[in-house]
Nucleic acid binder design. Structure first.
Length: 562
RNA sequence: UGGGGCGUCGCCAAGCGGUAAGGCACUGGGUUCUGGUCCCAGCAUCCGGGGGUUCGAAUCCUCCCGCCCCAGCCA
């Protein structure tokens, strides 16, 4: 269970449920389901649906099933089933014993199909796929009836059974619903409900040679499970008449299908097809690449389940197609990580600093707060010595007006340590800054001056003798346009790929307390952002992924200047 | 004159006839050993447009405009 007992915002689906509850529809039951097809990985769009379905059930004292919609064996695999289960669990939801598969209902589905044939509502059609398409008509023109439409019931029954027995080749015949070839709704023009496919199914093996289509299998599965509110995305709105048609003909329990808008996020693509392309063409390193908005990618990036749940809560649920600003997703991780991530010091682009008046062999152990937002997190000791490293960005030889970090002659504070003053800039032969010579004030140990003098900046740092070398991977948006799906002039979404979406930094230095941090653990590198230990990490070579930067007012000032 | 939906602040989104919630973003200011967090303030006289009903409309009626989805034996 998601665990947040916050009052969730109102939306049109809740209105419907509350109305149903008031009228004692379904005996006051609320039962939803999350029905993924095991043909790919879950992404944040699925998270919206997961949070909605499980969230609604929890809020109204109902139940939510996890059901795999596995009616197409040629696309589906056990590997995906396993990954999806892991992702839904990770997100924080529990379906109890109610893990189901549409394939659990294949026999029932078959019997119901026989019933449809018996009462004249379905027929076996010998048209080929191309012919069916031709007969279907167009958006403007009605279709034509199949020559097999009025086959006698007995013949349909016989043929359907033989389809099941594998007597006919793939694609040679279909079972079709007899509805209305002139309907303005193309889904009602005698849709196919069973097709012949001799493919092995990941769960039923070669038991079946015919497989039901989504429209037929889904409503019946919902009905069998006693689902009261069947939530799906907008593109299925046109399918609702068909959903209702099957259940009415079959005279079985009739759940209500309700459609809501799918999630889109700026600077990202959300379709499985496009994500697959990114993976296959090597624009990213697999489905769990930290730049992907798959749940596995977000997890590797360092996003927490709570942050994703909060995000799904904040975006709301409605019927208007919309695109949520990526900034909201980022806000949600920061919000969560701010509360729970231990603070630590790490220098990404090191600049060597020699404290000239600090004793050669001395080491200080300074006390640092683990998390100012969480007093229970305690403190730790951080070693300090004569040679340290600071961030290159924290020093400017010729600083502009608003820059108040280190500069020649200027005094700043080293976090939890001492005030230092920059005395000399040391260069190499090429003139590049090599290191800084600074002096420290022993009186300022811990970070405060007894005389009460102030400094304008506090810098993070790391001691040369004690630091751990690490690799840090910085990520940015995968796309550099707001809407890569519609990049204008019919340009492909791949033309909008951000070439700088990943920057690998070598030679980063992190404080020694990070030694042994396990994959998945998250930290705030003070003043930089939140970082998560990558699975590629080892004791010899820690690897961190930047989840998200801290809000950076200084960067904003600089940007506004330009 | 195919069918189905949707249009409230830059981005989401409440609102359901009684006179525009909230969040993100943005802008100012305060606190601060993270230019982080936190705090305070600002940010739609207006709800795609026109008519109409009403004492009163974003909410009802009507016409128009714009956007999205549908012609898989995919889901």
């Amino acid at each position: 269970m998601a665990g947040d007992e916050i009052q969730t915002p109102s939306n049109f689906i809740k209105h419907i449920i509350e109305e149903d509850l008031k009228n004692n529809k379904n005996d006051g039951r609320v039962h939803t389901r999350f029905p993924p097809e095991p043909n790919g990985y879950l992404h944040i769009g699925h998270a919206k649906s997961i949070c909605l379905n499980f969230g609604l059930a929890a809020e109204y004292n109902g139940l939510c099933n996890l059901r795999f919609d596995d009616t197409n064996p040629i696309k589906e695999e056990q590997e995906y089933v396993d990954a999806i289960i892991e992702d839904v669990k990770w997100l924080g939801f529990d379906w109890g014993e109610r893990l189901y598969y549409s394939s659990d209902y294949f026999s029932q589905l078959y019997s119901y199909a026989v019933r449809l044939i018996e009462d004249g509502s379905a027929y076996v059609c010998d048209l080929s796929a191309d012919e069916i398409r031709e007969y279907r008509g167009t958006l403007r023109e009605p279709g034509r009836e199949s020559p097999y439409r009025n086959r006698p019931v007995d013949e349909n029954l016989d043929l359907f059974e033989r389809m099941k027995n594998g007597e006919f080749p793939d694609g040679s015949r279909t079972l079709r619903a007899k509805i209305d070839m002139a309907s303005g709704n193309i889904n009602m023009r005698d849709p196919v409900i069973y097709r012949i496919q001799r493919a092995a199914h990941h769960r039923t093996g070669d038991e079946w040679r015919i497989y039901p289509m989504y429209d037929y299998a889904h409503c019946v599965s919902d009905s069998i499970e006693g689902i009261t509110h069947s939530l799906c995305t907008l593109e299925f709105e046109d399918h609702r008449p068909l959903y209702d048609w099957f259940l009415e003909r079959l005279r079985i329990f009739h759940p209500q299908q309700i459609e809501f808008a799918r999630l889109n996020i700026s600077r990202a693509v959300m379709s499985k097809r496009k994500m697959l392309k990114l993976v296959e063409e090597g624009h990213v390193n697999g489905w769990d690449d930290p730049r992907m908005l798959t749940l596995s990618g977000l997890r590797r990036r360092g996003y927490t389940p709570a942050s994703i749940r909060n995000f799904c809560e904040r975006i709301g649920v409605a019927k208007a197609s919309s695109t949520v600003d990526m900034a909201l997703l980022e806000y949600c991780v920061r919000e969560d990580l701010n509360k729970r991530a231990p603070r630590v010091m790490a220098v990404l682009r090191p600049l060597r600093v020699v404290i000239t008046n600090y004793p050669e062999t001395q080491t200080d152990e300074l006390e640092a707060i683990n998390n100012p937002e969480d007093p229970d997190a305690g403190t730790r000791k951080v070693p300090f010595s004569k040679i340290i490293y600071i961030e290159r960005d924290d020093f400017m030889e010729d600083p502009p007006k608003k820059f108040f970090r280190l500069a020649p002659g200027r005094e700043v504070r080293l976090r939890y340590a001492y005030f230092i003053t920059c005395r000399d800039v040391v260069r190499d032969e090429s003139g590049a800054i090599n290191e800084l010579h600074c002096t420290y004030d022993p009186e300022t140990r811990g970070g405060d001056a007894p005389d009460g003098r102030k400094v304008k900046a506090t810098l993070h740092w790391v001691s040369e003798a004690h630091a751990l070398a690490a690799e840090v991977r910085l990520y940015d948006h995968l796309f550099n346009t707001e809407d890569p799906d519609n990049s204008g002039d019919g340009a492909d979404f791949r033309t909008c790929l951000n070439p700088d979406s990943m920057t690998v930094l070598d030679g980063c230095l992190v404080e020694p307390s990070l030694s042994g941090a396990g994959p998945g653990s998250g930290f705030q590198f003070e003043r930089l952002g939140y970082f998560s230990v990558d699975p590629d990490s080892s004791d010899e070579r820690p690897v961190f992924n930047r989840t998200v930067t801290l809000r950076d007012t200084w960067a904003k000032i600089r940007k506004n200047k330009k």
